[in-house]
Design a binder for these strands. Structure first.
Ligand SMILES: [Zn+2]
Ligand SMILES: [Zn+2]
Ligand SMILES: [Zn+2]
Ligand SMILES: [Zn+2]
Lengths: 165, 165
DNA sequence: CTTTCGCATGTTATATGATAACAAGTCAAT
DNA sequence: ATTGACTTGTTATCATATAACATGCGAAAG
């Protein structure tokens, strides 16, 4: 019951990002413990790398970082860690970008919406229940059984929209 | 004003697909004429290929078809035609699939939602105004300026859900 | 203990998706 | 006849993702 309402997520607003990172890592540990899965060094480091910023990173970008720190330098190393994180709800895959981002509020199942700034690459992960509901209605009308949804908006974050104007 | 309500699109229901194809081609011609763009042989054939089925096709799948019919056999041939069609609203790119599908009701700007069957690969393109509105609300709350949206649901079409049960 | 087995990590090689850069052909306007 | 915009084709290369196999490690069974 200590859940903050997810809508309080800072998104593009400035915030204490250290707290962001720490909280996500803690929740990741909890979640994996529940599922009996292991947060090994590569996986942990991969998550930390994703958590450094509110951006999405390509698998090869992550791989470069891992390799530089003594982990394997072949694609499967990064892809496996990323796939693991996604499977366990600790990271998301951004379909438009072929890239990955840390999940900012794991701990409960969610299929968030993403706002992606095309100028600065920043990313906001938002609870998308109303959007999903609207989509579920559409699907129901067509007898379609939804399993996974992708909801992504590309555009300008407040900061970049401001400087452009 | 002769517009059928877009919601009458047959989606997964059986229908006269010849009419589907013919209508889409006609509307494509109209639309391009308005914009002063040319429906050249490669482009036209590419559109026809996409229109053969309510499935998304990868660029290389399209390329194979084009090559077999005497057009160029190098990737840019397909990618250019597909890009052209997408730019002019005659085809859509499916982000989850890295693939393309003909637009079934061009003629007015739209950012549809897609229902993608993971079993038979069939695809429904649906008007998504309510979904987009919900997403727009989210964006507005966060000061985000939306430019393009991706709304895709992966799951089972009625037919495939039926046989699975 | 030590054997066994699942799983994590690493490798090499290859598949799949996409674009850059350049050359040549068409065609309408000058 | 010449120019310039546009289209199509090429070669070469980049980017993204997975298959297949080898090794190591640690918990559970013997
Ligand atoms: Zn943060
Ligand atoms: Zn921005
Ligand atoms: Zn049809
Ligand atoms: Zn199906």
């Amino acid at each position: 019951m200590s859940d903050q309402p997810a809508s309080s997520a800072p998104a593009f607003a400035p915030h204490d990002h250290r707290a962001c990172e720490a909280r996500a890592l803690d929740q990741a540990r909890d979640r994996l413990a529940e599922n009996g899965a292991r947060l090994t060094p590569v996986r942990r480091r991969t998550l930390e790398i994703l958590l450094e910023s509110h951006r999405a990173m390509g698998a090869y970008e992550v791989l470069d970082r891992l390799a530089a720190e003594g982990f394997g330098r072949q694609p499967p190393v990064a892809y496996r860690a990323l796939e693991f994180l996604v499977e366990h709800g600790l990271a998301h895959r951004l379909q438009r970008l072929n890239a990955f981002a840390a999940c900012l509020h794991p701990g409960h199942d969610h299929a968030p919406a993403f706002l992606i700034c095309r100028s600065c690459d920043m990313l906001a992960e938002l609870p998308a229940a109303p959007v999903r509901d609207a989509l579920a209605d559409l699907a129901a009308e067509n007898g379609f059984q939804v399993e996974r949804v992708t909801i992504e908006a590309l555009g300008l974050c407040p900061a970049c929209a401001g400087t452009a104007a």
